[in-house]
Design a protein around this nucleic acid. Structure first.
Ligand SMILES: [Mn+2]
Ligand SMILES: [Mn+2]
Ligand SMILES: [Zn+2]
Ligand SMILES: [Zn+2]
Lengths: 139, 139
DNA sequence: ATATATTTGCAACATTGTTTCATTTGAAAA
DNA sequence: TTTTCAAATGAAACAATGTTGCAAATATAT
């Protein structure tokens, strides 16, 4: 789906900044950092607008934020074939962080287990980041 | 074990700042933020020294860092009954983040599963943060 | 074309994290 | 105990990251 339609689908305005972020992420095979997105956005990048758009795009569920470490953040596009009723999506998949090439991969196919929590705790969501060596870095 | 012995055990110098951090964490039942530690450290807090000591204490495996979000970080004491040969410990347990009271709980007892990764990926470690409502917040 | 709520971009600020370097200090050796 | 010296500290200065207020611009509905 193209960027314009994605924005329309989620009922938020089509603006240069938002289109640029979505296009940048669509051109990439994996989640990108702010700087990587910035490179691809060229002229249309403004730091404040970027933060606000990331916030909005995340809130409506167009993208998701992956926090590998406090100084290592990536943003990935959600595969939104279906429109979800309640936006502000919960992460539905785990992520892999390659400690060698520092790339992040969305592990859509990896099943997220039910964690057996102590009495009284109720889980609503989980963030799972698996660290190691990616396929490319294993020769 | 007391703070002095912990430092000695890991072969790093006993300093006021390090003792204060360890004592602060020992007094708490759960991991603390920088500000929470700062409060408990009183006079002996210096921001630069704090960062460096957090780095050192993490590197030798006395404490561990829990990144719930890039702006939400907690530090927890490792239960170090046994001395580990290779320092720079890997996280060995999952964490729970309560979205209501914002506390973090170390889930020592929750078993971390083997994730079935795609061909070529090799896992060395995993960071698991389960979000929801903690026991205290469920009345 | 017009109206208007949303979004933008700037300025200004707050917080967080890092580097350099002179001084101090912990702990081992003399 | 005193000496010695690598390690740690703390100040300054800086870099990076994140937030807020506000006037101007603009996307979309009418
Ligand atoms: Mn993802
Ligand atoms: Mn823990
Ligand atoms: Zn790799
Ligand atoms: Zn709670």
């Amino acid at each position: 789906m193209n960027a314009t339609d994605i924005l329309k689908l989620h009922n938020i305005k089509k603006t240069a900044g938002r289109l640029a972020i979505i296009n940048a992420l669509q051109e990439s095979t994996c989640p990108l950092s702010e700087n990587e997105i910035k490179e691809l956005m060229l002229e249309s990048y403004d730091r404040i607008t970027f933060y606000r758009n990331i916030q909005t795009l995340t809130a409506v569920g167009i993208i998701h934020k992956i926090v590998v470490d406090n100084t290592l953040i990536r943003y990935g596009l959600n595969c939104c074939e279906t429109v979800h009723e309640h936006s502000a999506h919960r992460n539905t998949h785990a992520h892999f962080y390659c400690e060698q090439c520092h790339s992040v991969v969305c592990l859509q196919e990896v099943k997220i287990p039910e964690f057996c929590l102590p009495e009284g705790f109720i889980s609503a969501d989980s963030d799972i980041i698996i660290k190691g060596k990616c396929e490319k870095c294993n020769h």
